[in-house]
Nucleic acid binder design. Structure first.
Lengths: 228, 228
DNA sequence: ACCTGAACACCGTTCAAGT
DNA sequence: ACCTGAACACCGTTCAAGT
């Protein structure tokens, strides 16, 4: 006659709760350690329960991207298109930098999510109201690419390793790659660097961004057109 | 007394043979279908046999990248730094485009491989002999990033799907994302596009590349310095 | 000493059996 | 109708047993 105790159900699962847990888990343990099984365990739930709220893992990752993009906030009006676009891109950058895995996951997506479409649409709007033709806006969007979200793909991770390598190895490096060695030496002694010896990612990002935005402004003023 | 027939050994395994088979398999079946187990099967070998020639799968992928980079060929001298750099980057691009998986795999690598270091070194050399300071060269390399290898990360894949979607969906898209719709309409009707309606990737790549190279040349002429 | 089959510790997802 | 445990079809890699 005694009924079994009701299962100690936590607040019922929802898509939102699944996504929040996934973001938190990825923040804590890294994106490689995020699996459907571990996420289910985290939520005190059997793996298959997740599939009621996300169709599959790809859709989970899409949702996580949208969650982060939601932290960007609305565009702030600027005195001109260039500072408005610049501010918006840097806002996206700081949102993505808040989650170490975010840029990696965005890179792996191919289909746009609603938040990404909305963000893209707002940026196109900034160009158009700033006096860009449809044609030039189109090429500007392609030229900026992932930089619109505040990150870039570097050739390789050039942050200096924890310990300087074996001197013999270093000497061999310098002999084989003299130009790289010259750059590395200069960067290592760079006083202005914020992060100590090595490269200041934020400076490099803004340097490249301004190079592109300045170039685009020059084309706009010139009335550039790809069909001309 | 009858000896067992000698095992019908194919030419013995070597690192080079493993890498060539991996490249061929990835070319044929895509990078997602490339597993250590399938590669071993392709070579008529037990999976563990591969581990004598590559330490693990990461090192296999590194080797594959180096194989593709080896197809770039040596730098050709140009009349000026800008055309020399441009030609070298476009050569890298065409090498990578020969393997659909190459850009994806390069993106996933973090440590540089010998061929990538050699390529990077040669590009730095082109800047330096072209009159760039160490400082400006450093920032130029960061600004170009993966574009040095001839590819960029787009925000999302905007190539038009095979069939135009449900008209109701299209109308909803246009209502929610008016600026994107405007661009998409213009691109779809673009006569000059090489690939039919849609975007001409090669044009977009060169547009952005020239925007950056032109900007860098302007900085070089001005004697720009980050510590100034 | 060398080689390798079986095993380990995972995956994402399907599916049928249970309530 | 709903839920879920077990199973399926894979992974990369370790390791001990066999030659």
């Amino acid at each position: 006659m005694t009924q079994p105790p009701p299962p100690a159900r936590r607040t019922p699962l929802s898509r939102d709760r699944v996504l929040r847990a996934a973001v938190a888990l990825a923040d804590r343990t890294g994106i490689d350690a995020l699996s459907m099984r571990k996420l289910a365990q985290e939520l005190g739930v059997v793996p298959m329960a997740l599939y009621k709220h996300v169709a599959n893992k790809d859709q989970l990752l899409d949702g996580m991207v949208d969650f982060v993009l939601g932290e960007i906030g609305p565009p702030a009006p600027g005195p001109d298109w260039q500072s408005a676009v610049r501010a918006r891109i840097l806002a996206a950058r700081s949102a993505l930098l808040g989650h170490t895995w975010a840029a990696t996951v965005v890179r792996s997506r191919t289909a746009p999510t609603p938040a990404l479409l909305a963000y893209t649409d707002s940026l196109i709007g900034l160009f158009r109201t700033g006096g860009f033709s449809v044609d030039l806006t189109h090429h500007a969007m392609h030229a900026l690419g992932s930089r619109l979200l505040g990150f870039t793909q570097e050739l390789f991770d050039d942050s200096p390793g924890p310990a300087p390598a074996d001197p013999a190895v270093l000497r061999a490096m310098a002999a084989n790659y003299p130009h790289i060695a010259e750059l590395a030496m200069a960067a290592a002694h760079d006083e202005k660097s914020v992060v100590g010896p090595g490269c200041d990612d934020q400076f490099e990002f803004e340097f490249a961004l301004d190079l592109l935005l300045d170039g685009l402004e020059r084309l706009r003023r010139r009335g550039w057109s790809s069909v001309g």
